[in-house]
């Protein structure tokens, strides 16, 4: 009995916890960069480690050792706090996802609402980062990020609620267990919701069809123009955690989560299944980002309201009629 706090601490700090998530974040950034590069007929990361697998870690430490330049005009408090918040929020939220067993480390009834709340909070952090930078490129980027959030937030919430209504619970672990007992993934039951959710996650991650807040050809680097050194390292780390969070959410809500595909649930089977499914989702994200071109901000917002919101409501109505549950 005395071992229990120790095991909890190990779980939080090492295995399905912080250390494992750090490795996962760097690994998925490598997969994303390499796959997108190969699709576009480039090489991608090549020299650090076998086929460049250590490149994201090398980039991270290189940025940490760079000089941290703070422009005179910035709001110092916001400028310092926002990179820390931007990387800490997705890391903390990742603990709600079940990885090692059927329940996550931080599982409670209603953690789906917490995830939605954190997604909104991340966008507000982005706006504050742009606002505190006092540069016109940063402010345009921050305003664009917020405008984009006004477009995708509603369909994303509705697409996350679809599985919750079917499973009768607002907890991610309960949704995963429901898919296990029913032996059917949510993709087959609610394909419309899956498509909407993937599109909204692309917008949340600011990947290419929706990379309007950091469009390099228009506004330098968008809301992160003024950041350098350790602050930029933390921003990039936060982006990687967001990628892990988004792929883990798609896998958990719509692809059966960490439940093994074969019928022997053992300690090794859960993380391996989780890794396989999330890697597939990351590959889907990078394929979409390599294939598409950027939308304009008005096209994006009006397209979201004209097509995605009615389709998401249609999906909810279908679920209420008994189709897909």
């Amino acid at each position: 009995m005395t071992l229990e706090p120790l095991i909890s601490a190990l779980q939080i700090l090492i295995f399905p916890g912080a250390f494992f998530l750090f490795c996962l974040a760097f690994f998925y950034e490598w997969i994303d960069r390499k796959f997108a590069a190969r699709v576009q007929n480039r090489y991608g990361p090549l020299f650090t480690g076998p086929s460049g697998i250590l490149q994201p870690i090398a980039d991270f430490f290189k940025l940490l050792s760079k000089e941290d330049i703070v422009p005179l005009a910035v709001d110092k408090l916001l400028f310092t706090l926002t990179p820390i918040l931007y990387s800490a929020l997705p890391l903390a939220t990742l603990f709600t996802i079940p990885i090692l067993s059927q329940t996550g480390i931080m599982t409670f009834e209603g953690d789906l609402i917490l995830v939605m709340f954190v997604f909104t909070l991340i966008t507000i952090t982005v706006f504050l980062a742009g606002y505190g930078s006092m540069s016109r490129f940063s402010i345009i980027g921050g305003v664009r990020a917020t405008l984009q959030m006004l477009g995708y937030e509603i369909p994303m919430g509705l697409a996350m609620v679809g599985p919750a209504i079917a499973a009768g619970s607002l907890s991610i672990s309960a949704i995963v267990q429901w898919q296990w007992t029913r032996w059917s993934w949510m993709v087959w039951l609610q394909p419309l919701g899956f498509i909407i959710f993937v599109i909204c996650m692309l917008a949340e991650l600011e990947l290419v069809p929706f990379d309007i807040p950091e469009a390099e050809t228009e506004i330098v680097a968008g809301w992160r123009t003024e950041f350098s050194g350790r602050k930029l390292a933390l921003l990039r780390l936060g982006k990687d955690f967001e990628l892990v969070l988004a792929s883990a959410l798609v896998a958990s809500l719509y692809l059966g989560g960490a439940q093994p595909i074969w019928s022997v649930p053992s300690v090794i089977a859960f993380p391996i299944t989780f890794l396989l499914k999330t890697v597939c989702v990351v590959l889907l994200f990078s394929l979409l980002r390599a294939v598409f071109a950027r939308f304009r901000i008005d096209q994006m917002v009006s397209g979201m309201w004209k097509y995605l919101v009615p389709l998401a409501i249609l999906q909810i109505i279908l679920i209420q009629l008994g189709i897909g549950r």
């Binding site: 912080a18 941290d68 820390i84 990387s87 800490a88 890391l91 050194g229 350790r230 390292a233 933390l234």
Partner: peptide, 12 residues
């Protein structure tokens, strides 16, 4: 998680 990020920030 905030403490971890503060440590990285301090280390940087």
């Amino acid at each position: 998680s905030i403490v971890i990020m503060l440590l990285i920030y301090w280390f940087g």
